[in-house]
Each structure stands twice: as C-alpha cells, then as structure tokens.
Design a protein around this nucleic acid. Structure first.
Lengths: 326, 326
DNA sequence: CTGTTAGCGCGTTCAA
DNA sequence: TTGAACGCGCTAACAG
C-alpha cells in the first residue's frame, strides 16, 4: 500500500479510502490512486485490515460431515450468500463429534471469525464458554432447540418425523417401522424417533420394539436394516428410514431381492436427495430446506453484523413428498 | 495476552513463548503462565500472530462445486490433513467458472492464505499473475497439465477414459458410445473424450459421431442421453458415461423402461460413487483417488512450507472396476 | 476532501 | 532464561 501511495503521490490514508470508501474522495484523486493500484498489481492485505479494524470477513461453519451431500448443500447456501456480501467461509467437519466441534470452535475463534454457524444444538461446556467470551454471533442449525445459544435457523426433526408417520397412516399403513441412526449419540435421530412415537400415540397405535431400529449410517446399513426388520416383523407394512442414505440402501435391496415396493413393503425416506426422484419406484420422502438453511443462516449473520439485535428463530419447515414407494 | 501476562506476573514475551515455544522456558514459569491462560480463558489471536510473523495458517481450496460429492471427498481429504497439522481450510466454490475462480483467488490471496489448491488446470491471465506475484505454493488438481503452474496432484483424465474404453473393447463390445459434459468449456471432459478417441484409434475402430454426445450434468440429462443415443444408433452395444452422475441417471432410465443391462446395452461410469456398488445391476466404473487427491495435495503443501523445493508432480492413477453392468 | 497520529495484538531482534 | 523496543500493514479518529 505504501508503494501505491508513493506512486500516486498521496498519503496512505487516501489509498485506503480509495479502496474502501471511494465516494469520499474527489473523482480525480480516486482515479489516480486506482490507476496506481492497477499498475503496481496491489492486493490488499485483509488480515492487517482485520487487525486494525478489529473485524474480520470470515464466517466459520462446522458441519458433521462435508462428504454428506445434505451438508454440502447447506454449506453451498452459506457460501453463496457470504460471497455476495464480500465475506468468506471457513468450513470444517466435526465428524459428528462434540469434542472435535469444541476444538474447531476454538480454532475458529482464534482466527477471529465474525460469526459461527453450527449444524448442531449440543455443545461441550468449554465450547459454550468460549463462544460466550468471544461474543460472536452464532447460528445453530439442524434442529430447533428449546434453549438456543443465540440464533436458530432450522426445521424441527420431531415435527417432520411425526408428519411423515401420520402421512403413512393416512395412506392406510398401520404396521409402520422406524429406522434411524443411533439416538443415544445423535440428537437429531432422537428427535425424529420422538416424532414417530408421538404420531403413533396420537393415532392410538401401540409402540412395538420390533418395529424400531437404530443403525449405522450408510447404504449397506439401510439394506441390512430392511432385511432385519422384515425378518423380525414379517407383517410390517411400511418402513420409514429417518437417516441419511438408509432408504436408498433399503430400496436397492428390495430390487436385488425382487420385492415389490410398495406391494411387499412401502418405503419412505427423510431427505429429498436428488436421486430419490429417479429410482424405480420413486421414493416418498420429506423435503427439508437444506440450501435455504445455509442461505438464511448467512443472512441472519449479516443482519446481526449490521446492527439488528432481534433474536432470530426461523423455522423453515418441511414438506412431505408423496411418490411411488408408499 | 496482556491480561495473562499481568495475571502471571511476567512479560508479554514470556506468555508468547509459553504458548509457542514452551521448551525454552523454565518449567515453573511455563506452568504459571499456562495456569493463567486457563484461568483467564485466553484464546490467542492468530490473526495478529499472522500479521506479525507474516505467515498464515489457512489454506485456500477452490472446487468447481461443493455440492458434488466427488469434490466434497477431496475437500475432506484436504481438511483432515490440514487439521492434523494445525492449519485450516478456506473452501470456495467456483461454479465451474474461470471468472469466479479468478475472483476467489484474489480474495484468498488477500486473506494471505499460505497455500492454494485449485481443482482446475485452466486459469485466467489475471489469476496467473496474482498467484505469481503472491508467491504462494499452488497445487493443481483434476487433471495432469502439460505445463503446470507449480505442483500437481491428480490422475489423468485421458488415460482413465482410454483405459475404460479398452476395457470395454476387451469384453467384446465394438459399438461403444461415449457421453461426457461439454468439451468446449470443460477441459476434463475434453481430455476424457480424447482418451476415448485414442482408444478407438488403437483398436482400429472408426470414430462415429452418432456414438459421441455432450450433455449437461445431472441425472435427468444422463437418462436423456441414453435414450437419444439408443435411438440414433440402435446397434450401440455399450455406453461409457464419462461425467458426474450421468451413468446413474441412465441406469435408472433402463430400469424404468425395463431394458436389460448389459443385455440390451452395457453401461459404464466414470467415478466410483458409493451408490454404484448398490444399484441393480452394480455399475462398472473407474475408481479415482478423490480423497487421496485432497490428502496428498495438503501434504505437498505442508512439505513445501517446511522447505522442500522439489517440484511435485504426483499421478495417483486410477483403477477400472468391473461389475455387473458391462 | 485530504493528511497526521496512534494504535490493533502479536512476533522478531537484541540486550540483559 | 527473560524482557524491552520496534514494526507487521492497515484503519480510526481527528485535524487541517
């Protein structure tokens, strides 16, 4: 920047202003400075700018897994909105671990991110303390917690699971199975199971342990879950796979075995992955606003930085998509 | 840090050393300082540290699309290796645009990233100039260019496509179709087509325009491409879908139409997405080292930062996976 | 509209 | 083994 100032024959401050507040300069001065910037090939050092202004232009986002396209979708939404506001995304992957999340939060705060987006509503005590001390705006995502840390942009897992269960019941399925990830370590799975059970209760259908399973993530796991449940409870009419790619794994297994869907058993999934509208049969599922969660989170963060003090609590809802598999 | 120094009754410098070079302090001093750090809940300001030391702990990575699980895989590899070295990942999405890539490179250099990983081997002149001026180490990925910018960690698209075409020929398919993304704007697609044509030539099979198609990305697009080609060239025996999820879209279309694969037509894909081993039939494809590309890129960057000056040019190769669809 | 002065919070250099 | 002084590249606050 010094070189630019020298080349343009102005002070450092004028260069700084030419780049950040061009309207505050006379047209000619501005032009001279910007020409010099071009000629020198100057690239501003925003880390120095951050230090001086005590603000940064980076937002940190922590997702359970980058490889999971659902979270990639959310990250894409965040990234798009941030970029159009001139901010950047520091993205990290907690591997579904709270310890890892804590470490990442520490690292991000140490980088002085100007906001944090966490796809998680459980946090370690130390993580909570660090966030509080840092005083940065935080968005929680992935579920709607009773007592949010700060802002929330999400849908309700319990509501969504309940809605799908009721939908299946409305289509005259009575023996409805439910498969999710481990509810002990995954709050989202827990909430979904809660929604399923709430639906059964409201329908007056008794809970049957043979119709409830908790499994590892993955296609293979979904296939096994299907076969296990059909073996344990041969009269099961529909299975609601409330996790990741479980439903697809299960559907492929029915194809391999030549089981008719929904003739032999109906299958419903949770997230509307692209692929679900192309399988044979097309899969009934919930549509969750993955991209929108990312976008709205970023927007809420931007609003807060611009001075809004309103607590944000956005429920983006969901939709039941009825296709051929139920 | 000042608070910590005061609480511990030492100078700022001692605090700094306690955190960065603990072995250079007496044990008791170190202990006093670290206790104070704990008590105060101090989080170091690494942006100030970066400014003072003129180094940063952030690596920038630009991929064509975060939503594409192939790139998410690569990003995951990078992120894992960086984290274990105490560095961070600034991830961005160019949307397959060179202009956007240029803008992102500028933004990242302005953040003074300590390294750049680009999933692309074509760049705008201005991007090249900025990178050169900044003097940061760069990794190019996604193909093996003739004249790399700096370091390369990839596989060869042309070699991979050629290998698959030869593999199909070895299985006695003669009329082999080839579907890719737009070769005019996508160098990787161009290289793959080149590999396909090279294989035909070496086999003495003449090129047939009816057997070559360029389409948009997406499942639907793959389905259309299949039908189009089967209509234009009813005698096509095998189709090699060399792009994204095209092969899966095509396979689902055969299921919908009840076409036998490989009876009516054989199908091969490019990337070994998880799902390909679960479809019915399982899809023959290439296995590309997506995760490994990310890991090795990060490692090469780390090596360079530690002072290695060797030019890096890693060809991680690929593998043909024969399954049921061919 | 433009320039001057004083830091931002740390690391580097040297002296103690 | 420890500490003091200086500066990284920029911006805030003010003065002109």
């Amino acid at each position: 920047m010094r070189d630019v100032a020298r080349a343009a024959g102005v002070s450092l401050m004028t260069v700084s202003r030419a780049l950040r507040e061009p309207h505050k300069l006379s047209e000619e001065t501005r032009k001279i400075v910007l020409d010099a910037v071009q000629k020198i090939g100057y690239v501003p050092n925003s880390i120095a700018a951050n230090l001086a202004s005590n603000r940064s232009s980076v937002v940190g986002q922590i997702v359970p897994s980058i490889r999971n396209s659902l979270y990639a979708e959310t990250a894409k939404g965040t990234s798009d909105v941030l970029r159009s506001a001139g901010l950047h995304l520091l993205l990290a992957d907690s591997g579904y671990s709270l310890q890892e999340e804590e470490a990442l939060i520490g690292a991000m705060l140490s980088q002085r991110v100007c906001g944090l987006i966490l796809h998680n509503t459980d946090h370690t005590p130390r993580a909570l303390q660090m966030i509080e001390r840092a005083g940065v705006p935080v968005i929680e995502t992935g579920d709607i917690p009773r007592r949010p840390l700060d802002m929330v942009v999400s849908y309700s897992n319990a509501e969504a699971a309940k809605a799908m269960t009721l939908h299946l019941a409305a289509r005259r399925y009575r023996r409805i199975g439910f498969v999710s990830l481990d509810t002990r370590i995954n709050r989202r799975a827990r909430e979904r199971q809660r929604g399923y059970l709430a639906a059964l209760k409201s329908l007056g259908i008794p809970k049957d342990p043979a119709l409830i399973a908790e499994v590892e993530p993955g296609l293979t796991s979904g296939a096994h879950a299907l076969v296990d449940m059909m073996t344990r409870a041969p009269d099961v009419e529909a299975i609601f796979f409330a996790g990741d790619v479980l439903a697809i794994g299960a559907l492929f297994e029915t194809q391999r075995r030549g089981w008719k869907v929904p003739g032999r058993v109906a299958i419903a999934g949770f997230d509307d992955l692209d692929i679900l509208q192309h399988t044979v049969p097309r899969l009934t599922c919930l549509r969750l606003p993955r991209l929108e969660i990312g976008r709205r989170s970023a927007e809420a963060l931007l609003d807060r930085m611009r001075g809004t003090k309103n607590p944000v609590r956005v429920d983006l809802g969901f939709e039941v998509i009825q296709r051929e598999s139920t």
